[in-house]
Design a protein around this nucleic acid. Structure first.
Lengths: 304, 304
DNA sequence: GAAGTTCATGACGATTACGCATAGCAGATG
DNA sequence: CATCTGCTATGCGTAATCGTCATGAACTTC
């Protein structure tokens, strides 16, 4: 079987798998069973004559050939969708930009950039969605997002190691700060000393994988007590406001801190920097995408 | 049924129909029966929700929607083929240019341009094929040719009236000439007077459609005797050499005239001009295509 | 070692796609 | 006017394909 005999269905299934990272999730997103996905992937791999996916316990990873297929598949499927749109008389819909963002970019940068955009480019339509870094990166590679806002911590590795590499731009570099209840003794000054952080109670992020101490000040070698874990920033900050613990927060979130929470720098330890990244594919960006990127860049400068 | 549900097979069939102009010819080129083609076209039209082809007695003609679909289909199919090539480890094969030409461009211009190209761009591969104007234009639109050499006579209408229009460039404008046997009384001078053309025997081209007098000097209102009809230039010119008749020929063919044939201008009538055109789609041309176009342009100037 | 992931696969029913044969239609030809 | 020769459309039977269900195998986590 030749690759030219693949079906569009197989390409769609493959794209969904690439985007969601597992057969099961892809199946759910398509309304198929996992079995159907498995067969379609087997078929397309037979057609390609090579493995396109490395099966690993936690899901799949694209091989080099898989990336090649994905690159072409996104073009093909996009073209089909564009044909359908044109035939139904709709405009080319080239004005819509799809943006992905991590939660910590959603409270300040995103609304500012979008507000500004709606003033300067009222014709531009932006649809956005939140997600974790791996989810957003996969969606970007699968062609279902045009731009992605990501975070990065030292040693500032690239968000993925695939080829071709993503085009990544640093929008801002901010120091990591501490969210402290206004009523807390530590909140009296304009900064906190790292020595005072031992023995505090912490509100951590969801313990996902390696960086399981997200939310706890880095480098505290003593066993820190994690009192609560939460993913949502509003919840985290209100837990802090209620005096239930401390948490780390990017300086960029300062303007969004609710009453009862102070965002303070920490002195005495190594500089803890966090970067906000804007990533896209290495294809030439359409003009509306470039406008949104520019607005995000401007908004990031604004919040300095 | 939505257009997004079309199959690649349907797109391929549709492209073949657009290229060959009839269901039957498309079926033959694909190794299908006419029945299968008819069904696939019906399916894709149902998916598109509109007629894509006007059925006429002599074949089909694309509607506006049909052109839209064709445009996208060529992209999609090209992308699939590129994927197949990449997966089999071959280079992107971006160095191959597909050129179409009408017979009168094949004897002089084509070999000159290709010889020159093989000297200046040895890495460039050109595959070419001969065809009639409508066949070549359809093949160009269907994406199976990159460049097409065409002829044009007054009133120099565009080779087709579809949208988007083809990008057409005039490579040369030559006067129409007369091929005369060297032994013929008319061959004594350096030109022929139009008055002497009455009552001659002619070697015409195949009587296809409107321009059924191709080969006979235009404007001879009397009934001219067509002694032979031939499509092939070598045959035509050797029929002339054997004294079996006269025929018209573009001045560009002069260097290719065999012994026993003189190519002479005709005086006394209106100027009969013929243009050699180079046509391509309105998409931006890849660099190798531009090289070939440049070589053709240069060769056309050379043969002035 | 039990439970919960992951992907793979045999069996089955519904759909689809093809070729064959034939019908319908319009212009050319005698 | 009848026939012939292009063209496309369609009824029918067969063979391949696709998706679900149910189950299995490999592996991590508790």
């Amino acid at each position: 079987m030749n690759f030219e005999d693949v079906s569009l269905t197989a390409l769609r299934v493959f794209r969904a798998v690439a985007e969601h990272g597992t057969f099961t999730a892809a199946a759910a997103s398509l309304g198929y069973t996992q079995s159907a996905v498995s067969r379609q992937v087997a078929t397309i791999e037979r057609a390609a004559g090579t493995q396109l996916l490395q099966r690993r316990r936690e899901g799949v990873r694209l091989t080099a050939a898989g990336l090649t297929v994905l690159r072409h598949a996104t073009v093909v499927l996009h073209e089909i969708e564009a044909t359908a749109r044109e035939l139904s008389g709709l405009p080319p819909a080239a004005g819509t930009v799809r943006l992905g963002w991590i939660p910590s970019a959603g409270a300040v940068l995103l609304p500012r950039a979008l507000t500004e955009l709606s003033r300067t480019d009222p014709g531009l339509r932006v649809v956005s969605r939140e997600g974790t870094t791996p989810v957003l990166v996969r969606a970007l590679r699968a062609g279902s997002l045009d731009l992605v806002l990501l975070g990065s911590a030292p040693p500032f590795r690239s968000p993925d190691t695939e080829t071709p590499p993503l085009v990544v731009e640093t929008l801002a570099e901010r120091s990591l700060r501490l969210a402290v209840p206004a009523s807390h003794p530590l909140a009296r000054g304009d900064f906190v000393d790292v020595a005072d952080l031992r023995g505090q109670r912490w509100i951590a992020g969801p313990s996902s994988g390696e960086d399981r101490l997200m939310g706890v000040w880095p480098g505290l070698d003593e066993r820190s007590e994690i009192a609560h874990t939460a993913r949502d920033w509003l919840a985290k900050l209100h837990l802090v406001a209620a005096g239930l613990g401390l948490t780390t927060v990017s300086a960029a979130l300062t303007p969004a801190a609710p009453d009862g929470v102070r965002i303070l720098p920490v002195r005495g330890g190594p500089q803890e920097q966090r970067r906000l990244l804007l990533a896209r594919l290495d294809r030439p960006s359409a003009q509306p995408v470039a406008r949104v990127a520019a607005a995000l860049r401007a908004a990031a400068l604004d919040t300095t």
